[in-house]
Each structure stands twice: as structure tokens, then as C-alpha cells.
Amino acid sequence: MIMSRKLTWMLLIGVATLFTQCKDSGDEVEADDENELITSVTLTFTEVGTGTVTKFEYKDPDGDGGNTPTKFDTISLKANASYTLTPEFLDESKTPVENITEEIKEKDFEHLLIYTPTPASLLTYTYGDKDANNFPVGLTGTAKAGAAGTGKLKVQLRHQPNAKNGTATPGSDDVNLDFNLVVK
């Protein structure tokens, strides 16, 4: 029975190949160091005149999911005071910590920061910087607190590659945080 012999050989090869393919996918698992996260947002308010610096933070060191954010401060400002507002964005999931603010600055022609207080009377924001196309950026600016009250300050980082036109519409959110805001 030539055929049976052929068949036996084939079965043997088959059984052999069945077990030769064992690759351990666990050996190849590695941390991702290329994709960027923003894990912390720090808003630095420097009071005009006194130079008093106050910082308010959002922190989620392990990024989306996993553990809940470790810090989400309430912004507290003095009524009718003027501040210089500078935001800072970090990726603390990487070692060393990556400064995203620098990268936003380099690519300011495709980023826009938007600060939206609710109610609007709580704060007035004026952009203090412009990109090469004369559109605002928002990495520095003036925030003038209004009368005492409580509400929210929405901080948005709009990523608008090839579409930035000075308005909020194009692109998508890279940051979208609603800080509690107290003006007293």
C-alpha cells in the first residue's frame, strides 16, 4: 500500500508541524514609547503686579483608564485680579518625562488653546501669543478674573493640522478639561 505509506508520512509531518510553531508572544511584549499621551496639565497663574504664582493641576500619570486621575484641582482666583496664564503639558508615563508643551510650541501653527469660563463673567482671557500665520495660540495670555462667584473653566487644546484658521471648529480635542473655578 504505497498510498497508506504516503499518508502515514503526511500525518507525521502534520503532527510535527502542529507543535513546531510555538512562539511565546510574552517574550515580545514591550512598553510603548512612541505614542504620546498627555498625563498632566498644569495651569500657572502669575498675578500681575504682585508676581504671586499659583498652580492648578490635572494629573493622570497612567493615562486613560487604569487608575483614576490623582489630581484635579479647583482653580481659585482673586476677584478683579489680572493674571498671566501659562499652561504646561507633560507625558509622565515615559521616563524621562516628556514635555509636550515644547512640541506644541514648535508646532504652534497647528495648535490652539481655548479657555472658556462658565458663566462668562467669571473670567476674561486675552491671547498673548501668535503663530507664524498670525493666529492665536494660547501658550501665554492674560486672564482677568471678574466679580466673586463659582463656575467652571474649560481648557481645550485643539489639534488642527493643516486646518488652523483661528476658530475652534477644525480638528479635534487633545485636551478637554473642565476645571472648577472659584473667584473670591
Binding site: 499621551l37 498627555i38 496639565v41 486613560d64 483614576t68 484635579f72 480635542d173 487633545d174 478637554n176 478639561l177
Partner: peptide
């Protein structure tokens, strides 16, 4: 789930 999850994008 009843409660939303907070991320840096809201």
C-alpha cells in the same frame, strides 16, 4: 455604566 470616566480629553 452610571458614572462617566474622566480622561484628559474630558
Amino acid at each position: 455604566q452610571p458614572d462617566p470616566i474622566l480622561t484628559v480629553r474630558g
